[in-house]
């Protein structure tokens, strides 16, 4: 039978071909080409690699500065409230779990479950940012600030505040953006736009959310615990 291309829509679905270099083609209409994942998911993976490099530059700078000037960095718990942030970390990990739950729900076609778990994720994510803001305000009042001129005589030196705010701040910004994106997804979920067959948006935002969570676990370890 001759292979014909009826319309744009089927065409994009029909791209995957398994073919040897000899040129014998069998066209597999079930998958898109490439890594066997849909474009948005592949795109998110690629984007996250880029994000890894961004955090590498921040964390790498932190490691270099800390290695060169250990005297600038106060011992764990001297300035930062480890217990509060440990609780906050737990909250963020829980939000990753609820994100998994949300995805699992829609895979079963459970729209209500999707809405419920998405909302839980949003609440926990927003609370994480709230706790971080609360932490910043307290630290600021104690004179723990990033700038050299504002540097009060707290334990450690000015590099401590600068690296602390740069790393946790950019992570916080990522969480905030994630919460906004989750709200967008949540609104779509309320409108019933996700189904068993079509819930790419949930999967893609989930990837981002787990990434942000993972970065935080690294940051919590190196900034607060070590």
């Amino acid at each position: 039978m001759t292979w014909m291309v009826p319309s744009t829509q089927t065409r994009t679905k029909a791209r995957r071909v398994t073919m040897s270099d000899a040129g014998i083609a069998t066209i597999d209409r079930t998958l898109e080409p490439g890594m066997g994942v849909f474009n948005k998911k592949l795109g998110m993976w690629v984007f996250l690699l880029s994000e890894v490099m961004f955090f590498t530059s921040l964390i790498g700078s932190y490691i270099i500065l800390r290695y060169a000037h250990p005297d600038h960095f106060a011992p764990p718990g001297a300035i930062l409230n480890v217990n509060l942030t440990a609780a906050n970390t737990f909250l963020l990990i829980c939000s990753s779990v609820s994100m998994v739950k949300a995805f699992a729900a829609i895979q079963q076609g459970d729209v209500k479950g999707l809405q419920y778990w998405l909302l839980a994720t949003i609440v926990m994510g927003a609370s994480f940012v709230g706790v971080q803001v609360y932490e910043y305000i307290g630290l600021g009042q104690e004179g723990f600030l990033p700038g050299l001129d504002d540097y009060a005589a707290h334990a450690g030196g000015p590099l401590y505040g600068a690296t602390f705010y740069a790393m946790t701040g950019f992570h916080g910004a990522h969480v905030s953006l994630g919460v906004l994106a989750l709200i967008f997804v949540y609104i779509r979920a309320l409108r019933g736009e996700y189904t068993v067959a079509d819930h790419e948006g949930v999967e893609v935002i989930g990837l981002y959310w787990h990434f942000v969570d993972l970065v935080w676990i690294i940051l919590f370890t190196i900034v607060y615990l070590i």
């Binding site: 700078s61 270099i64 500065l65 060169a68 000037h69 600038h72 990033p146 700038g147 050299l148 001129d149 504002d150 540097y151 030196g157 000015p158 590099l159 505040g161 600068a162 690296t163 740069a166």
Partner: peptide
Amino acid sequence: IGTAFFRPEGSGEPLM
């Protein structure tokens, strides 16, 4: 904002 990542007067590292 006056941080000192690369400013030697705050022990920052210009070579970084």
